[in-house]
């Protein structure tokens, strides 16, 4: 295994551990306001400093890891369900079904990504779950195209013809004989997608349209940090680095698996 892939895996492992053991790792309550320690720079008591309400940045970022991990999993889960369903239907049946579904994909791709996202956020309530759902609903198109292309090539192979000749139903052929073979490229796309979902969530939260305070997410910590960017550089530097590392981890792992 490649050194870089290993680096990616270890970043994600750390992310998962932080998310699971957040209450044990974080030295302070992430919501605890401390008026005596407002905007104190990184020090021995607060290793990453505190924010404008005196909350410990390190603790908030540890809890923020939970949001990032969840967003990656759920958003990609949603886009996997839609993408695999549409992609396999289009690829397997072809003809009218195929052109209808692919037209739908083309149309979805016309919408400037963030325009669609913030429109949906404006119409729905900005709960963490809704954010994840919306990100999934707007990011399945690439997967659908990928699955369709894979299914198109696999359905002509001999073992599929054999299954058909033996009288297997369409559903069984797709789910048992075709989809397992699409797994490797889909897995790579899903892992890369998790990084993308984290980027999208953090941008939305940074704009104040994603995860709502006081629930900490790396994006909304950055939003709060922007107001005091000239005196509290640590509130901008550390959460951004965390996003960069997490996304880099998924990208390195995805690229490593591709090879």
């Amino acid at each position: 295994m490649n050194k870089l892939t290993l680096f990616g895996i270890s970043i994600i492992a750390v992310l998962i551990l932080l998310a699971i053991f957040a209450p044990l790792i974080s030295p302070y309550n992430p919501q605890a306001i401390d008026v005596d320690n407002i905007l104190s720079p990184p020090s021995r008591t607060h290793i990453l400093g505190t924010d404008s309400l005196g909350r410990d940045l390190f603790s908030r970022m540890v809890y923020g890891a939970r949001v990032s991990l969840e967003v990656g999993l759920v958003a990609v889960g949603v886009s996997l369900i839609i993408g695999v369903l549409f992609g396999s239907l289009a690829g397997y049946w072809g003809g009218r079904v195929d052109s209808l579904i692919m037209r739908f994909v083309d149309i979805m791709l016309c919408f400037p990504t963030f325009f669609l996202l913030i429109t949906m956020v404006a119409f729905l309530k900005a709960t963490v779950f809704n954010i994840m759902l919306i990100i999934g609903l707007t990011s399945w198109m690439g997967l659908a195209r990928l699955v369709r292309a894979e299914v198109l090539s696999i359905k002509e192979r001999d073992f599929v013809r054999y299954a058909k000749a033996m009288g297997a139903g369409n559903f069984k052929i797709i789910s048992r004989h075709i989809l397992p073979h699409t797994l490797p490229p889909v897995l790579v796309a899903a892992i890369l997608g998790m990084g993308g979902a984290i980027l999208t969530e953090s941008a939305l939260s940074f704009l104040g349209l994603g995860v709502q305070p006081p629930t900490p997410s790396w994006g909304n910590i950055l939003m709060e940090g922007k107001a005091v960017i000239d005196i509290g550089w640590w509130l901008t530097l550390f959460p951004g680095l965390a996003i960069l590392l997490a996304v880099l981890g998924y990208n390195l792992l995805g690229e490593g698996l591709r090879r």
């Binding site: 990084g195 980027l199 953090s202 941008a203 950055l222 951004g240 996003i243 960069l244 996304v247 990208n251």
Partner: peptide, 8 residues
């Protein structure tokens, strides 16, 4: 570049 959040 792929991993860097643009807004950051």
């Amino acid at each position: 570049g792929f991993s860097l959040p643009g807004f950051w």
